[in-house]
Nucleic acid binder design. Structure first.
Lengths: 201, 201
DNA sequence: GTCTATAATGGGATAGAC
DNA sequence: GTCTATCCCATTATAGAC
């Protein structure tokens, strides 16, 4: 009598593998360890993910999707474009100060495999590309004179803040990043009234 | 008749190993590859560096020392504290836009081995600590009201810029980073005359 | 006594077979 | 699930060359 395939198996494997990969790095975690942590047989893992690269790519894809959902939700809570950009940065700041934070899994992967061109690395590079494109789209809504320049300045702070934060940081650093982006926006839109996001203009 | 010990052996090994480690990551490069690239026998490598960790630590130490020398030289070319801080950022910007740039070896190492506590990781963490301390010392010379806060803002841009730049970037990004730091300094010292570092105030 | 070349050791990796 | 094939890893041991 054959067993019915458990519906949540793929997710449980991905949960276990993702936690290990994120905490210790992809290369440091062997497939045997993933199998053990998933609490299932080896064949099940390999039937869902034929190679380790496939498993890593799925892990990064899920990470990427969750990040996109979280930022989109944060942005959707604001209506004015300037507040949306700030909300985006604030969301990253919250994440960085959360316990268990170990950096951005996608950036970490590109550092761990600088020359790879497999499915996993393509996911990571695609995320960074899309992430910057979404910021550019938000900045376009600001109606500033030089949207490309303002995007580059904000991206420098946001991407740098995210890339430089490799473990859980205290919230003050995040507030500093938010404040820096606020000032970039204020400088680019000097004719706007004071916004009151975080204090005096 | 015994051979004379070759004086430059250690440096040649470190050159070869460093180039490989920097370009492809530490874990991706095996000792056999280091031996082959160094063009010497295996025992010679192990006589100079008893373990791979020792070799990596020496590689990071040399990287760190060179970075410190380069930044100190750049800072020494200026006399006014504000110009010194800007020179520090500009030096990093130059490096990031140089061909063959693959990120900061010390930050890369901490990403590759997030949980390690060996000699190599201590070198990397020590470099980051000292690097920030040197910035703080420079900012102290600015005489601003809140040196700790200004240090944190500049460090966020500088460290983030360096950490986020994982390959050779065009010089425009570096100029943006320099400009951001200039603005941070200008905001913190509003009573100073225009500086003319890179344009109108 | 210093170096090179090569073999051997012991462990752990991915992956496939059954 | 266990067992196995194949490979690569860091490291050590051995034996020969200058």
């Amino acid at each position: 009598m054959p067993r019915r395939p458990q519906p949540g198996a793929r997710d449980r494997i991905l949960d276990a593998a993702g936690a290990l990969f994120y905490a210790r790095g992809v290369r440091a975690v062997g497939m045997s360890e993933v199998v053990e942590a998933a609490g299932c047989g080896k064949n099940l893992v390999y039937s869902h993910f034929p190679t380790k690269v496939d498993l890593v790519a799925a892990y990064l894809e899920r990470f990427s999707a969750r990040r996109e959902r979280a930022t989109e939700r944060a942005v959707a809570e604001e209506t004015r474009p300037a507040a949306q950009v700030v909300a985006l940065v604030a969301e990253v700041a919250r994440r960085v100060s959360a316990p268990g934070f170990r950096g951005c899994a996608l950036r970490n992967h590109l550092t761990e495999f600088p020359n790879a061109d497999d499915a996993a690395s393509r996911v990571a590079r695609g995320y960074l590309r899309d992430s910057r494109a979404r910021l550019a789209a938000l900045v376009d809504g600001l109606g500033v004179a030089d949207p490309a320049g303002v995007t580059e300045r904000i991206w420098l702070v946001l991407d740098g803040f995210y890339a430089g934060a490799t473990r859980s940081a205290d919230a003050a650093v995040g507030r500093t990043a938010v404040r820096l982006v606020e000032e970039i926006i204020e400088r680019a839109t000097p004719d706007l009234p004071p916004t009151g996001w975080s204090g005096q203009s």
